[in-house]
Structures are given as C-alpha cells and as structure tokens.
C-alpha cells in the first residue's frame, strides 16, 4: 500500500514537465525514505535523478519498497489535469498494476481520480559515486536557462569553462561564435541572484546544448541551479526542490578530440 499526499501538487507537475522530454519511461521507486527516480535518456548520454523525500509529503505511507514503471508522458498528461493549487495524492495498492492520482482542489469542492496503468520497465539503475567536483557554480536558474537557450540558437555545443574570475559559456556555430561570461557575484541583495563559484582547479568541458536545454525545463522548480564540473566526470546540473529533495541531471561531456572545435582558451 502506497499513499503519498503532496500539498504542493504543482511541484509534481513541474517535476514531470522537467523530465518527461528527456525520458520516456521510468521507474519511480518508493521507499520509506522517499519517492525517487533514476533514468537515462534513450541515448544514454544524460541521466536524471529525482528525489522527493518523505518528509516533504504531508502524508507518506509506503509499506514496502515499490517500483512503479510509468510512461512519463502519460503521467504528465494526467498531472496536467490537476490545478496548480491542487493537492495531489498518489495511491497504489500492493500488486496492483495501476497507480491513482487524486487531485483535490484547495477548497475541497472538487476531487478527481485518475488511474494510470503501470508498465514493466527494465530498470538500469546506475551507481553514482560520490565525487569531489573541481568546480561548483551556483547561479540563478533563469540565467542559466537563458544562456543555454541563447547559445543553442548559435551552436550545438557549449563549452563551460570555470576559472576564478567566473564561468564562461561559449559556443560556435555556422553563423559565428558566442561567449557569455558570468562573474562571481555574491554581493546581491537576494541570495538567489548570486553567482557563486567554488573551484579547486579550472575546468573546461564541452556539452551538447540540446541536453542542457532539456535540463533547463526544471527551472520552475528552483531559482538556483548548481553546476558541478570535473574534468573527467559528467556535469551535474542540480535543481533543488524546496524542502523536499532535488532533481539532478547528469550529462556526459563531449570528448574533445580535435582541439579546434569549440574549445576556447582557458
């Protein structure tokens, strides 16, 4: 028996919007600690890890660990039927092959039940080792989203270079090149507007903008995004979900064989 009641239902809606384009089908794993998901995109270039801790739910009941395979597109369709202020409750019975989404309007005068079929998905759970990253950049998520969007209109790949001075996003395309530098800036009034760089050594990595852009769909979840880079590891793009957990995107870098590609001088 599983019953999760999430008062801030819009959160789940946003989560689905953030990952449904990257991953088609995925297993949601429910345990006593929380509601989580890990899935790779179909080309195995990116990985998304979601965690919604049990504490974040108003009511969280999970008798035994449960893995529910869902088509994220279908799930998103159902969640779209929920109002932004609705309370969403997920219910599943043991051994059942369906999951029920219940939406309650804030005034409790409308209650909707949506039952969705589950599916069997071969889960490929990856072990993600804890790692010390060479550089961690915290910046406004909207800014990051804007940068990715802008750059993708010029090129396919972004080179993210972190130095002490700031983080540089550069691209090169048929029409020309673009470089955007965000300087470290923690003197702003609002902490969410700060750009903070923690760096042990300079890093420069190349990524497909396509995926970056896909990640930025999570922007509504958090005003801050954290990019963690190491020269030999996938970048981690993390959006914290207030008081509940996080959604993390891992993206394998492009292997830089020919230096002339889009690699700027660091």
């Amino acid at each position: 028996m599983l019953e999760l009641r999430l008062v801030q239902g819009s959160l789940l809606k946003k989560v689905l919007e953030a990952i449904k384009d990257l991953v088609n089908d995925a297993n949601f794993d429910c345990s006593a600690t929380g509601f989580s998901l890990q899935a790779m995109d179909s080309s195995h270039v990116a990985l998304v890890a979601l965690l919604l801790r049990s504490e974040g739910f108003e009511h969280y009941r999970c008798d035994r660990n449960l893995s529910m395979g869902m088509n994220l597109g279908n799930m998103a369709k159902m969640l779209k039927c929920a109002g932004n202020d609705d309370i969403i409750t997920l219910k599943a019975d043991d051994g059942s092959d369906t999951v029920t989404f219940m939406f309650e309007s804030p005034t409790q005068d409308k209650i909707s039940d949506f039952e969705m079929k589950l599916m069997d998905i071969d889960s490929e759970h990856l072990g993600i080792p804890e790692a010390e990253y060479h550089a961690i950049v915290r910046m406004p998520s909207s800014e990051f989203g804007r940068i990715c969007k802008d750059l993708s209109s010029i090129g396919d790949t972004v080179v993210i270079s972190v130095t002490k001075e700031g983080v540089k996003f550069s691209t090169r395309g048929d029409i020309g090149t673009a470089n955007i530098v965000c300087r470290q800036n923690n003197t702003v009034d609002k902490p969410e507007e700060a750009t903070i760089i923690e760096m042990t050594e300079p890093v420069s990595l190349t990524f497909a903008l396509r995926y970056m852009n896909s990640f930025t769909k999570a922007t509504p979840l958090s005003s801050i995004v954290t990019l963690s880079l190491s020269s030999d590891l996938p970048v981690v793009v993390e959006y914290k979900i207030a008081e509940m957990g996080y959604i993390r995107f891992y993206l394998a870098p492009k292997i830089e064989e020919d230096e002339d590609e889009t690699k700027p001088q660091v």
């Binding site: 270039v45 990856l126 497909a208 996938p234 993206l251 292997i255």
Partner: peptide, 9 residues
C-alpha cells in the same frame, strides 16, 4: 564525440 553516461556510472 558525445560521451556516454554509462562510461562514468
């Protein structure tokens, strides 16, 4: 040139 996530995890 695109790396594969499986080569990391």
């Amino acid at each position: 040139k695109q790396g594969n996530i499986l080569s990391f995890f």
